[in-house]
């Protein structure tokens, strides 16, 4: 296996072009380590992208927060501009794994791994994030983060590199709720990310994403549309939570939880997340 440590993005893209599906990108490495140990027969090149400085940058430009693909979960949780402009992402990042894993795990790797309850993918969906994918043959393209998500994988071509996420900065109220078997350090069975904009008392736009209830994280379209243009209150929260569970979620039974239990979790977690959003909105308008 050949090993490369490119200093510049262009170099990395040339390497991915050359080795394609027989290359692996080393980012956080938390999943790659065990994968390579199990079977490295089809890997010719390991491309360590950590020396490419622009991939670790968080930057605000014209109300868009750009988060490099190599920013770690630990840094997302404590970064001042992420907390100010994309608090939902910071909240979700603080719940990823345990401290040791958060030191290493990157936002790009977490999304590319394709876990259906990835904390970061769920929150990025609710943030309506876009991502920049680059390759030496096609240059850069920007896609909705939802287009990148695939069950247990991602939609990147072998010669493409995920470079950054772009999130709209807004004054939306946000909440992240998850349920796991242990309280700490466990993938969520179900997670709910909510991000609501208000215009006066009315919900101006709602983005709700669900983890653990479909092959990939999904948006809860039915719940979102019932909230739009209405005054958020207990009854509406209950209705949206019920729709999220009954219309939007399509969970399967698996080793960790039954589909029925996951549906019930959606009701509870969506209600908690929306109640949290409502509490924040009331506090802000009372102040």
């Amino acid at each position: 296996m050949l090993y490369f440590e490119p200093n510049f993005l262009d170099e990395a893209l040339v390497l991915l072009e050359r080795f394609g599906a027989r290359s692996r990108v080393l980012a956080g490495g938390t999943l790659l380590a065990t994968a390579l140990r199990a079977d490295a027969a089809d890997v010719d090149a390991l491309v360590n992208v950590k020396r490419i400085r622009e991939l670790s940058v968080v930057q605000l430009a014209e109300s868009t927060l750009r988060v490099g693909a190599l920013v770690t979960a630990h840094d997302l949780a404590r970064d001042a501009s992420v907390n100010a402009h994309a608090p939902l992402l910071a909240k979700a990042a603080a719940t990823v794994g345990a401290r040791q894993l958060r030191t290493m795990a990157t936002i790009g790797g977490n999304v590319c791994a394709g876990h259906h309850a990835s904390d970061l993918a769920v929150s990025l969906l609710a943030c309506e994030a876009r991502c920049t994918l680059s390759s030496s043959r096609d240059g850069s393209r920007s896609v909705d983060v939802g287009h990148l998500l695939r069950p247990a994988g991602n939609a990147l071509a072998p010669h493409e590199l995920l470079v950054a996420f772009e999130l709209p900065s807004s004054g939306a109220r946000t909440a992240y709720q998850k349920m796991s078997i242990r309280r700490a350090f466990e993938m969520a069975l179900v997670s709910v990310a909510a991000r609501l904009e208000f215009s006066g008392a009315l919900v101006d736009g709602a983005c709700i994403a669900l983890g653990g209830v479909a092959p990939t994280p999904i948006r809860a379209a039915a719940a979102e549309s019932v909230l739009a243009g209405k005054v958020l209150g207990e009854q509406l929260i209950g209705e949206a939570a019920r729709l999220a569970a009954e219309s939007d979620a399509r969970p399967d039974d698996d080793l960790r939880a039954s589909a029925d239990y996951r549906r019930q979790l959606v009701v509870v977690l969506a209600r908690q997340a929306l109640a949290d959003v409502l509490r924040q909105h009331r506090q802000a308008t009372a102040a």
Binding site: E5, L26, T30, A33, N48, Q100, T103, M104
Partner: peptide, 15 residues
């Protein structure tokens, strides 16, 4: 590593 805890079983030595 640089003061931050990591799982050394997953951490690549080259890193």
């Amino acid at each position: 590593v640089d003061g931050a805890p990591v799982n050394s079983c997953l951490f690549f030595a080259v890193d």
